[in-house]
Design a protein around this nucleic acid. Structure first.
Length: 197
DNA sequence: CCCTGATTCGC
DNA sequence: GCGAATCAGG
């Protein structure tokens, strides 16, 4: 593979979007993250600043003076780093159904919820639940696109609204979830088996 | 261990 | 110019 204009363009785009070198490499295909990084450097955009943005690093120079703003590039598009929730668009307070072709639709419950059901106060170890609650505060709130092989894919929030994201915490094992979520995801199904219900 | 970007240097 | 190997972190 070679760095065609298109590929370089995509590289620039993704890099400025804050994508990691490995992700870019994966997207491009035929190159490794090293190649991407090498190219990035050669292109001179090692700093992820499409034109100027980063808060920059406050040098040990505590100069109370006003910061000099170079008018060098006043009209820079400046690609703000947006979380880019991937799938869901920035939902507006629009309660209306977008357009459900179904003649008779019931609740807006997405039938295809491939991922584990939210723990419904079942017979799950309270400690594990507490842990999840705790962990979800630290969730990285990844969008569908941000998920990788080793990020927790536990869904959080309501898929029907914009309040939906994935845990995203590292799932170091070969598991699809982080430690906490693994805990409530698959219980050995042995914890209290004879509930003599 | 997983990951990140940065650098080097033979090609 | 290219990128694998390596380095230096998190």
């Amino acid at each position: 593979m070679s760095w065609t204009d298109e590929r370089v363009e995509l590289l620039k785009k993704m890099w400025s979007e804050g994508q990691s070198a490995s992700q870019i490499a994966k997207e491009l295909g035929g190159v490794t993250r090293n190649a991407v990084i090498g190219k990035v450097h050669r292109l001179g955009l090692s700093n992820r600043a499409g034109g100027a943005a980063e808060p920059a690093k406050p040098e040990p120079k505590a100069k109370p003076e006003k910061v000099e703003t170079k008018p060098a590039r006043p009209a820079e598009p400046k690609v703000e780093e947006k979380p880019a929730p991937a799938a869901a668009a920035t939902a507006k307070p629009e309660p209306a159904q977008p357009a459900t072709p179904s003649p008779a639709r019931r609740a807006i419950i997405p039938a295809g919820q491939p991922l584990p059901p939210q723990p419904s106060a079942n017979e799950i170890d309270p400690a594990a639940l507490a842990k999840v609650g705790e962990v979800e505060k630290h969730a990285k709130k990844l969008g569908l696109m941000e998920l990788t092989e080793r990020t927790c894919k536990w869904p959080i929030g309501d898929p029907a609204t914009e309040d939906f994201w994935f845990c995203g915490l590292p799932s170091q094992s070969g598991k699809p979830y982080c430690e906490a979520h693994v805990g409530v995801a698959f219980q050995p199904m042995s914890s209290r088996r004879d509930r003599r219900r």
